[in-house]
Design a protein around this nucleic acid. Structure first.
Lengths: 332, 332
DNA sequence: TTGTACGCGTTATCAG
DNA sequence: CTGATAACGCGTACAA
């Protein structure tokens, strides 16, 4: 590795002068500056970030803890966050917990080792005690997509409860009276909040819904859940409207209905939540409640950066929006 | 920050002893070991990774350069790679280039600064000169999903040419004679290879295809491309089979056909490539050629780790597989 | 088995 | 304007 000392030797200057040139700090004569720059180019010198961190105490690194990258929702979030951090000169350390508490704890240790300056967390765990360690180490934390229960930490997230209400509201306004709520993962607080919002709104209309939540959030699992719900009983008590807790769950429900020979939306209406690109891949295209995912990522970074600078950012509201497409219609 | 010296003081030992306990190296009496461990726990000590790197020269960090995380293909790849690296005790630095040559160059500089021990690259650029700098710095590189043209670097990727041939082969075997190839992004070498494979196979059957590639790889753009192709001319010269260069392109083609009042697969057969989860979201479900994406990620890490240890891994072949679903049928 | 001293690459401070 | 020196936290020769 070519170091700042090699440059100093090559340019006939002291290491301090070289450092000044590299960091554009202090006074250096034009001639000297040019000589140093030439040496830097000649030896293809790149400053050693480790040594810098060692000296400065600040790592310019931010941990980004997510349940996964292979599901579209978190992939999009990760992309936005990574890009925005990089734009701010910060290095993202992306960590996929796989929804395992064990991995989550190991990642926290790793982030501590790495001396990260801040952490962005979208955890799906009930238990946020692992993150207490970060708080103890005085590391700035911002929660994304959901709060960290029990920790006094800023969070940037949609109003999932309101989202649940919106889903119910729309189906109610179309005329439905028989509901099922289907989704996963059942331990996810945002999912729970949406379920609560939906059932709350239905209760206000004097109605109840059959709620079926599964442990794993993938297409097949959600489809199975929906099949079980739609196949049961007589036509009279079969739900005419299915509220998916996410778009993937809703897409599973559409497949379940069509697989059972039912028509969507004529026999069964379906609504989702998120408005991922996937919502438009299904046919009929999924009616869903959109949350501003990219804006959430951006705001989370903005807030984190502000907090790291000892300030607090004022953030705009995060609006939800009904995306009317082809899977909801009045019941027959 | 609590350092190794604080532990030494607390435990009444020397820093050396503490270091030995932490790294399980050398001889330490059981009693002393216990005392040190207690101190480590009491002070919530975490070794400083920066200082470690500084001493050892090895950073245990690996750069992972991808075009994006918000498209399912790369999200899955990133997830697998990150998990496997973490399992190997390596820290992934995930970099999204957004397909911008400029960002790619900046990321390379950053990786050099960070003193990464290795780099995994899935670039969509034609030009791999930025990576020359990594080679010059003797950093181990493994290319994923496609080779880095002009650089003598190991690569782990499917045989995209063979994949293109498989797509054509299947449609040919079903009886089609009028083909279109639709997809994006046109500058992507894997996409180009699939197109070449498909046209090659068709040429062997004495046929040609209309090839339409666009610059941006998203659902809407691909759908537009397909609409243009399917709407044109008379029924007689409208293609009866569409080869999508990716699943997303194929899904766009399905929507285009149905939007034009055509039936899939009766009027138009469609085949894709990748076998992403999304292939099953469309209705009818997409027939596609699956590539073993997770295995590719695993092998790439395996090869990188081997290379970093001065060895070369023998890797299993990466089989492609036709996933017969509901979008291909004989022409009317 | 345990302790001391040095160096890794940078940069802040202070002296020249 | 430029240079010498110390310090960041850890690992490792070497000494005890």
């Amino acid at each position: 590795m070519t170091s700042i000392r090699d440059i100093a030797k090559q340019a006939g200057a002291s290491v301090m002068t070289v450092s000044r040139v590299i960091n554009n700090s202090g006074y250096v004569s034009a001639a000297m500056r040019a000589r140093v720059k030439r040496a830097v180019a000649a030896l293809a010198f790149t400053p050693n970030a480790n040594a810098r961190r060692m000296r400065s105490g600040s790592s310019q690194m931010v941990g980004v803890v997510l349940p996964a990258l292979d599901v579209p929702f978190f992939g999009i979030l990760a992309q936005v966050i990574e890009q925005e951090l990089f734009r701010c000169g910060l290095q993202a350390l992306i960590c996929c917990t796989n929804e395992s508490a064990d991995q989550e704890a190991r990642y926290v240790s790793m982030l501590l080792s790495q001396q990260v300056d801040g952490v962005l967390v979208a955890s799906v765990q009930e238990d946020s005690t692992p993150y207490q360690r970060l708080v103890d180490a005085k590391i700035t934390i911002v929660a994304v997509d959901r709060a960290l229960p029990g920790l006094a930490v800023q969070s940037v997230a949609s109003d999932h409860l309101a989202g649940g209400r919106m889903m119910a509201e729309h189906l109610l306004s179309v005329g439905h009276r028989h509901f099922a709520v289907i989704g996963a993962p059942q331990h996810s607080p945002p999912v729970q909040a949406r379920v609560q919002g939906a059932t709350q709104r239905l209760a206000e209309a004097g109605l109840t819904a059959q709620v079926v939540l599964g442990p794993t959030h993938d297409f097949d699992a959600c489809r199975e859940l929906a099949v079980a719900v739609l196949r049961q009983g007589s036509v009279a008590n079969r739900p005419t409207a299915v509220i998916g807790t996410t778009d993937i769950a809703a897409i599973g429900a559409i497949h379940a209905a069509i697989g059972l020979g039912l028509s969507v939306p004529d026999d069964v209406s379906v609504i989702g939540f998120d408005d991922l690109p996937e919502a438009r891949y299904v046919l009929p295209a999924l009616t869903t409640v959109a949350q501003p995912l990219r804006q959430i990522g951006l705001q989370a970074v903005t807030q984190l950066v502000a907090l790291m600078a000892g300030q607090v950012a004022e953030l705009a509201a995060l609006p939800l929006k009904l995306m009317l497409r082809d899977t909801t219609a009045p019941p027959r």
